[in-house]
Structures are given as structure tokens and as C-alpha cells.
């Protein structure tokens, strides 16, 4: 009882634990996890990675061989024809 009164009812310490520590923890959580991992991952960073991957795939597609190009033309042609027939 004496200790309780001497240490100001542990008011400062309680205050510290309940409000300050949790605010800090929440703040840290929001920052490191939500901001960095979730928002940025899905938002700008994720999107740009996705597009970079698509771009690499597209470049690989351009092989340099004529027969593949000609083949693409014919495939494109057939696809359009099929689409029109099905309409």
C-alpha cells in the first residue's frame, strides 16, 4: 500500500503501458506492415513488377525467326475469321 502511494499510484507507469506503448506499437504496425507490405505491394510496386514481367515475356516472344512471325499473322487471321463467323 505504501509503495502504491509513493509511486504516485503507478499512474505514470500505467499511463505508459496503456496509452503510449500501444500507440507506438500500432504506429509501427501500420507503418511497417500495412504501408510497406500491403499497400505498396499491391499498389505501385506490385503493379510495376507485374508489368515488367509482362514486358519480358513480350520481348521473348519476339524471337527473330521469320516463320514464327508468319505464323502469328496466320493465327491472327484465323482468330479474326473465327470470331466473325461465330458472331
Amino acid at each position: 500500500m505504501y509503495n502504491f502511494l509513493v509511486n504516485k499510484w503507478y499512474f505514470d507507469e500505467l499511463y505508459e503501458i496503456i496509452f503510449i506503448q500501444s500507440s507506438k506499437k500500432i504506429g509501427l504496425f501500420f507503418w511497417k506492415i500495412v504501408d510497406v507490405k500491403i499497400i505498396d505491394k499491391f499498389g505501385p510496386d506490385g503493379l510495376s513488377l507485374l508489368i515488367k514481367n509482362l514486358s519480358l515475356k513480350a520481348s521473348k516472344f519476339q524471337s527473330g525467326f521469320i516463320y514464327q512471325y508468319a505464323f502469328m499473322i496466320l493465327i491472327g487471321l484465323s482468330a479474326l475469321l473465327t470470331f466473325l463467323i461465330l458472331q
Binding site: I51, K52, L54, S55, L56, A58, S59, Q62
Partner: peptide, 10 residues
């Protein structure tokens, strides 16, 4: 779309 995406790696 292709013109936009494919040029990125060039």
C-alpha cells in the same frame, strides 16, 4: 496495350 508493355524492356 502491346505497344505500351513491350517497349519497357527495350
Amino acid at each position: 496495350i502491346f505497344g505500351a508493355v513491350a517497349a519497357i524492356g527495350q
